[in-house]
Structures are given as C-alpha cells and as structure tokens.
Computed example of a mutant assay.
Amino acid sequence: MSTITIVGNLGNEPELRFTSSGVAVAKFSVGVNRRVRDDAGNWTDGPTSWHDVAAWQHLAEHVAESLQKGTRVIVTGTLEQRSWDDPDNPGKKKYAWQITAQNVGVDLTFGTATFQKSVKSGAPADPNDPWATASRTRPHSAPAPAGAGPGYSQEPPF
C-alpha cells in the first residue's frame, strides 16, 4: 500500500454511516487544485483532481461532526484501488482509487480553527492528561522575578 497526503477542499458534506456491526465510516471527496502559471506569468488554478476518501471509527465521527463542504483539509492515508463488476456491461470490471484516511485535519493556511479534545462517553477526564484539564484562559501576569534584569517581559516571545 502507498501512503499519500493531499491538501484540498471538501467537495461534499461527509456522509456518516455505520456497518452492520456498528463501526462508523465517513465518506467524502476532496478536490485538489494545482496552481499553474499561464503564458503571461500569472498564477491560475489548474484542473481539479477529485479524490474519494473513507475515514473509519472515531475519525469518521469526528470528520462528520467537524467538517462541511468547502472546508480546506489535509488528508493522510493509504491509497487503494477498488474494483467491481460493471452492472451495464456484464463481465467487465470497473476500477477506482480511494484514500483510506489515517489523519484528517483542517488546513490553517487561510483560516483559523479551534480544537476540542473528545472524551470517551461516560468516562471522566484523565487528571494526568494536560489537555483534559487545561484552561482556555491565559493566567494573570505575575510580577517579574527578582534579578530578572532589564528587558524582562512576561509576554511570550511570539
């Protein structure tokens, strides 16, 4: 199997379904545009390549809850070819490529996002997990420590 990473926009709303054994699967498509220079030296969008993506289990549920058509995403996964018998031409096979997602994230190149860690339903937050107990507010500034010297600032260096 080949690993692939694509960056593009969701072409449709993720479709969440469950297998007969209760496993979640989300299917969606991602359109990838290459930027190309025309003869005048201007950048333009090239043709769109569409990729079918399937996400499974918790990732599927998170994708369906978090993303919508048009969201710019980064998808990493395995590239697999599927085949099936063509119902219109008996005895003839059809083929398609699909990415089975291992990771899906929002591309922050052109926007911002807020992350919320999910907690298993009914389970209390782990007190040893710094993300589960972290505050979303900045602590109040404390006075500079003695001997900090000139130019000391409580502000982060970014």
Rank of each mutant, 00 (worst) to 15 (best):
E155Y: 10
A134G: 05
Q116D: 12
K117I: 14
P124R: 08
A96V: 13
S153A: 14
W131M: 15
N89R: 15
T137I: 12
D88F: 07
S135G: 07
E80D: 12
E80R: 10
G122A: 11
G105L: 02
Q81Y: 04
G151P: 07
T76Q: 09
T137Q: 15
A148R: 07
W131A: 15
T112A: 07
L67V: 01
L79P: 03
A142F: 02
T137S: 10
E65Q: 11
W131P: 00
G91V: 06
P127W: 13
G151S: 14
G147P: 01
G91I: 08
Q81I: 07
G111V: 03
A96R: 13
K120S: 14
G111C: 09
T100P: 00
T76N: 07
E155I: 03
Q116F: 13
P87M: 13
G105N: 05
G147V: 08
S153V: 13
K94A: 05
S141Q: 11
N103E: 04
A144S: 09
G91K: 05
Y152H: 14
Q81L: 03
D129Y: 03
Y95W: 09
A123T: 10
S135Y: 10
V104C: 01
G77M: 04
P145R: 02
K93L: 13
P143T: 04
K120Y: 14
G70V: 06
Q98N: 05
V106N: 01
D107A: 11
A96E: 09
R82A: 10
E65F: 01
G91W: 12
S135D: 13
P145H: 05
K117G: 14
E65S: 12
G149K: 08
D126T: 05
V75K: 01
E65L: 05
A148N: 05
Q81F: 03
S153T: 15
P145S: 06
R72D: 07
Y152Q: 11
A142M: 13
R138E: 09
G91Y: 11
R138C: 02
D88E: 15
P87G: 14
T78G: 11
K120G: 13
L108P: 00
S135I: 06
V73Y: 02
N89Q: 15
L108V: 02
A125W: 02
S121I: 11
Q68T: 12
Q154W: 03
T114A: 11
T78V: 10
H140S: 11
D107M: 01
T100L: 09
V104F: 02
Q81W: 09
T76A: 09
P90F: 07
A125C: 10
V75H: 03
A146Y: 06
A96N: 10
A142R: 12
N128A: 09
E155F: 06
G149C: 08
T109E: 04
W131K: 12
G149P: 03
A123W: 12
P139I: 04
P150L: 11
S118T: 14
D126E: 11
Q102R: 12
I74T: 08
S83K: 06
E65I: 00
T109K: 14
